[in-house]
Simulated assay, not measured.
Amino acid sequence: MATAVLETADAKTKTALSRDYAARWFAARRGETPEIKIGTASPPLRPARPAKPELLDPRDVPRRRPGSPEGRKALLHAVAHIELNAVDLHWDIIARFGGRVRFPMGFFDDWVKSADEESKHFQLVSGCLESMGSFYGELAAHAGMWRAAEDTAEDIMGRLAVVPMVLEARGLDVTPGMIEVFRKAGDPAAKQAVEALEVIYAEEVHHVAYGSKWFHFLCGRQDTDPKEAFHRLVRTYFHGALKPPFNEEKRAEAGLPPDFYWPLSETGSVG
């Protein structure tokens, strides 16, 4: 099921399939349908992607001011691209590591739920774009989104450290500012975007928390200090320093204390 999502190229089909599989998983977990067995899989190194958007080097993606309608459209397009990649990231961690690392069933519950929510987020933001006369794929997008997945394809600890605990945690830092951009615009399309971003903001905390939860679980199994392991893995797999300001309240809610990320920041200070 996870690999089928990864091998589906069309964004709307991918997210619909993702949500259908998540519903089937949880129906089975509630005992309403026959049990779904955990097997093994050979997921693709890169997920299937639609012909559009054109994927560019991050330096080549055009910059637009968010105060203009075109800038707000570009911002939502970037969010949609992030959410679509997140759908694949959550199914990939199941397909790639679920059959080779011994996890309790809660591991699968958490990442299926995350994939379902990311699919919902993509659909919400895609709907916002359509209300603005646009669509996902109209603009160019960031080609480097999958790099962290490729770099950590053989390292479950690295995957948990970099994807939910760094990349998704960054969403907790920047989403309040995005909400404010659309709130100031005040038009009906912007109001719809605010509602979508508020859903995303509330649910992304859980995804970061799942990363922290299973990272600490594996550190406990290996008798490894979580903070030291996190610092080592981020320096190995993440390219560049972490950028403040940090949303310390939401990060703490997700199980990320300041001494995890401040030493890896551009200032390198916890103070």
Rank of each mutant, 00 (worst) to 15 (best):
D116C: 03
Y136A: 03
V174Y: 13
R72W: 04
T15P: 02
Y237A: 07
A95V: 06
L6C: 06
A148C: 00
S18T: 05
E203W: 04
Y21Q: 09
Q123T: 12
A28S: 15
S134E: 13
V174Q: 05
G177K: 10
F26H: 14
F122T: 05
G98D: 11
G98K: 10
V174W: 11
R183Y: 06
T267I: 03
A149Q: 07
P164C: 04
E228F: 00
I94P: 02
C128I: 09
Y201F: 15
V234Q: 02
G240Y: 09
A190I: 02
H142I: 01
G268N: 09
L167C: 01
T236F: 00
E248N: 06
R63F: 14
P257W: 08
A27L: 10
L6M: 10
L129R: 04
R30C: 00
A141I: 02
S119F: 06
S18G: 09
P53I: 04
P245V: 12
V162F: 03
V166R: 03
A143M: 06
S269Q: 13
L17P: 01
M157N: 01
F215E: 06
A209P: 01
E198D: 12
K213G: 04
G39V: 08
L264G: 07
W111D: 01
E198F: 09
P104S: 12
P53V: 04
I38N: 12
M165R: 10
Y201V: 01
R30A: 15
R102I: 08
R72Q: 12
V194L: 06
P43K: 08
S134N: 09
M145V: 11
L45N: 07
G127C: 04
E168N: 08
G99W: 08
T3F: 00
L242Y: 04
